[in-house]
Amino acid sequence: MKIKIIILSLFIFGCGEWGAVLVSSDYKPVLNIFGLLTQDESGSFIIVTRTANLDENINSDYYDYYNDNPANINIYSAEVYIIKEDNDSIKFELTNSNNNYYNTNQYTNDDFIPLPNTTYFLSVSDSVSGLSAKGELTTPNFPQLNMMELPDTLTINKPFTLNWIPSQNNMGISIYKENNHFEEFVCINNENRYYEMNDSTDIFKLELCDYYYDTEFNNEFISSVNIQLREYDKNYFDYFVLYDEDEFMNFLIGQPGSTAKSFGIEGGLGVFGSFITVNEFKFIKSN
């Protein structure tokens, strides 16, 4: 009888959780901000969103259209200020509140142009949600390419050296064909590289995209490339480059997830970053 009871209890115990279980948490949302200060064409902007609890639906996958009432995590009612070192504050206004999928809540100020090597503060508060956050960054300097050692015209498949003035920030270099229209039938492999602070030189070689074009274009041609040097502040570089990967990577480890990543933001998540770009144009020839 005892054995029967033991066996019976083992089977009763032996069930477990098969199937889906709805989950919840007592997580309190915070502001989630992407702020960029730059002199580039994109302009400076602050995107203000908030994080969400598990019982809200922010899912943007293909099932989304079933959902009649997606949670709106974009913040349209925020007071956004950029504050200079001298406490002079510049208000950023919501400039795009249409229903475009991306960047539906950019706060901008067309008159604002960030200065290099200057500290700026960010203040965001939203009276509707009661959430607020602050930020701080120091803009980088203009990167400087040493043009003296660079030939006037670059040659395909011939290495060349780029030298630049070393910086206390991380650098990025992109080299791409300036006009990459299909009818030109010349495709150059893009180069995108990142550098540690104090790096100052690297060797590049421009190559055609693949051998189809190589065989098609034995004749000489001349085109042009743009050499883009970009100096990043630490916040931007850390968020988008250094800690871009999830801590939980794949099925071998577990479901992808993110820790509360915050670079230059206090009281919330996200990034308050900056970069400054310079461009140099160079002609290229095939041989």
Binding site: V23, S25, Y27, P29, N32, F34, D40, E41, S42, I47, T49, T51, A52, N53, L54, E56, I58, N59, S60, I73, Y102, N103, S174, Y176, K177, N180, N190, N192, N226, Q228, Y239, F240, D244, D246, E247, F248, G254, Q255, P256, G257, S258, T259, A260, K261, L269, G270, V271, N279
Partner: peptide
């Protein structure tokens, strides 16, 4: 490691000198 909330994060894209930032949604872990 449990999930505790949801968040969007931004990725950057720079193609031919044109910047773009796009959103992804993800679970926040505790």
């Amino acid at each position: 490691t449990p999930i505790i909330g949801q968040v969007i994060y931004w990725d950057e894209s720079n193609w031919n000198g044109e910047d773009d930032w796009y959103e992804n949604d993800e679970f926040l872990v505790g």
